[in-house]
Amino acid sequence: MNPSPAIRKVFQGVASRQQMFRMFDRHAQRPNRWDGDAAPLYTGEWFEIIEAEHDYMFEILPPLWIRGAMFAMREFLTGSVTSVFFALRIDGVIRHFHGYCDLSDKGAVERMRVAIIERESRPVCAMTRDERLEHIWSTTAADYRGYAGDRWPEAARGRRTITLYDGQTGSTLKLLDDLTDDEIAAKLPVQLRHLPSPIAA
């Protein structure tokens, strides 16, 4: 529907407990929630959490499995997709992450582990355009994000939308993917607005 199943960072920074629980189901508002296969929406999403939340999730239920510094949740989100939690040493520091992996794909967990380490080992803090859009989606309150419905052209229906506010024209609804660079900057926290892209890094 919107995101591809590629491995992707969906939040910049370290998520609090409240943010973590919100991001566990970033697509709850999608139309036809109970129809079709939702696995492609979630598979590959990851974000950083604090150690206390990693340990909290470990203690909720016995894990489905533990492999070194990784464990998988016993309860599946959809189909064969479940939460996998990582404790990874990056630049000499242990950091903690949550990701959604499709366990029917035998290599999915290892590919995510490698992708997280590669992404977080960059020498310069940077964000791709897609990461900026995902961060905006993750941090926007449910009342201000949604999905294009019947009033939109057929090609746009089901795509993610964001409410923008302009002091002159008021509130407008726009497709998330169609935000301009200026609109993206306005929706990001100040500390993220001027980060370079990885290409420039």
Rank of each mutant, 00 (worst) to 15 (best):
residue 1 M to D: 09
residue 1 M to R: 13
residue 2 N to T: 11
residue 3 P to E: 08
residue 3 P to H: 13
residue 4 S to Y: 05
residue 5 P to A: 07
residue 10 V to G: 01
residue 11 F to R: 06
residue 14 V to W: 07
residue 16 S to K: 10
residue 17 R to L: 15
residue 19 Q to K: 10
residue 20 M to R: 08
residue 20 M to D: 13
residue 20 M to V: 04
residue 22 R to Q: 15
residue 24 F to L: 10
residue 26 R to E: 09
residue 33 R to K: 14
residue 34 W to A: 15
residue 34 W to Q: 12
residue 37 D to T: 07
residue 37 D to R: 14
residue 38 A to P: 11
residue 39 A to I: 08
residue 39 A to H: 05
residue 39 A to L: 08
residue 42 Y to V: 01
residue 43 T to A: 12
residue 43 T to P: 04
residue 46 W to A: 00
residue 49 I to G: 01
residue 49 I to D: 00
residue 50 I to K: 15
residue 50 I to Q: 13
residue 53 E to S: 12
residue 53 E to G: 12
residue 54 H to Y: 15
residue 57 M to L: 09
residue 57 M to K: 03
residue 61 L to H: 11
residue 63 P to Q: 10
residue 68 G to I: 05
residue 68 G to W: 02
residue 69 A to K: 12
residue 70 M to Y: 04
residue 71 F to H: 06
residue 72 A to V: 06
residue 74 R to W: 08
residue 74 R to E: 12
residue 75 E to H: 15
residue 77 L to I: 12
residue 77 L to Q: 07
residue 78 T to N: 07
residue 81 V to Y: 13
residue 82 T to E: 03
residue 82 T to M: 05
residue 82 T to C: 10
residue 86 F to N: 02
residue 86 F to A: 01
residue 87 A to H: 05
residue 89 R to F: 06
residue 90 I to E: 00
residue 93 V to I: 13
residue 94 I to D: 14
residue 94 I to L: 06
residue 95 R to M: 03
residue 95 R to L: 01
residue 96 H to K: 05
residue 96 H to P: 03
residue 97 F to L: 07
residue 97 F to Q: 02
residue 98 H to G: 03
residue 100 Y to H: 14
residue 100 Y to S: 02
residue 101 C to H: 03
residue 101 C to Q: 09
residue 102 D to V: 04
residue 103 L to W: 01
residue 103 L to G: 02
residue 104 S to V: 04
residue 107 G to K: 08
residue 112 M to C: 08
residue 114 V to S: 04
residue 115 A to D: 08
residue 115 A to M: 08
residue 116 I to R: 01
residue 116 I to T: 06
residue 119 R to N: 06
residue 120 E to P: 00
residue 121 S to E: 03
residue 121 S to D: 02
residue 123 P to K: 00
residue 123 P to I: 09
residue 127 M to S: 07
residue 129 R to V: 10
residue 129 R to C: 10
residue 129 R to K: 12
residue 131 E to D: 15
residue 133 L to F: 08
residue 136 I to D: 13
residue 137 W to E: 02
residue 137 W to S: 02
residue 138 S to N: 08
residue 139 T to I: 09
residue 139 T to S: 13
residue 140 T to N: 00
residue 140 T to I: 01
residue 142 A to G: 09
residue 143 D to V: 09
residue 144 Y to D: 12
residue 144 Y to P: 00
residue 145 R to V: 01
residue 147 Y to K: 00
residue 150 D to Q: 10
residue 152 W to M: 02
residue 155 A to E: 14
residue 156 A to P: 02
residue 160 R to D: 05
residue 160 R to Y: 06
residue 160 R to A: 15
residue 162 I to L: 05
residue 163 T to V: 14
residue 164 L to S: 06
residue 167 G to S: 14
residue 167 G to V: 13
residue 167 G to E: 13
residue 167 G to H: 12
residue 172 T to C: 11
residue 172 T to P: 03
residue 174 K to M: 15
residue 176 L to V: 14
residue 176 L to E: 15
residue 181 D to I: 05
residue 182 D to W: 10
residue 183 E to A: 05
residue 185 A to G: 09
residue 185 A to F: 09
residue 186 A to E: 01
residue 189 P to I: 07
residue 190 V to Y: 15
residue 190 V to E: 14
residue 192 L to M: 10
residue 192 L to N: 10
residue 194 H to Y: 07
residue 194 H to Q: 10
residue 195 L to K: 09
residue 196 P to Y: 05
residue 199 I to G: 06
